[in-house]
Computed example of a mutant assay.
Amino acid sequence: MERTLVLLKPDTLARGLVGRVLGRLEDAGLKIVGTKMRWMDGELCRRHYFDLEERHGAEVYRTSAEFMQRGPVIALVLEGFDVVATMRKLLGSAFPSDAAPGTIRGDFSHHSPAASRATGKGVANLVHASANPTEAAYEVALWFDKDELFDYRTLVESYTY
Score class of each variant (00 low, 15 high):
E2Q: 08
T4R: 00
V6T: 10
P10M: 03
L13E: 01
A14E: 11
A14Q: 11
V18D: 01
R20L: 14
R20N: 12
L22H: 06
G23D: 14
A28P: 13
T35K: 04
K36M: 03
R38S: 09
W39K: 05
R46F: 07
H48F: 15
E54S: 13
R55C: 07
H56F: 15
A58M: 09
V60M: 09
R62M: 09
T63Q: 08
E66S: 14
V73H: 02
I74P: 00
L76H: 04
E79H: 03
E79R: 11
D82K: 10
D82H: 13
G92K: 00
A94Y: 07
F95T: 06
G102P: 02
T103S: 03
R105Y: 00
R105G: 01
D107I: 12
H110L: 10
A114H: 12
A115N: 13
S116W: 08
R117M: 06
R117I: 06
A118S: 08
G122P: 08
A124S: 15
A129I: 05
S130T: 01
A136G: 04
A137Q: 11
A141D: 12
A141R: 10
F144L: 00
F144N: 01
D145Q: 13
L149N: 04
D151F: 12
T154K: 05
Y159M: 15
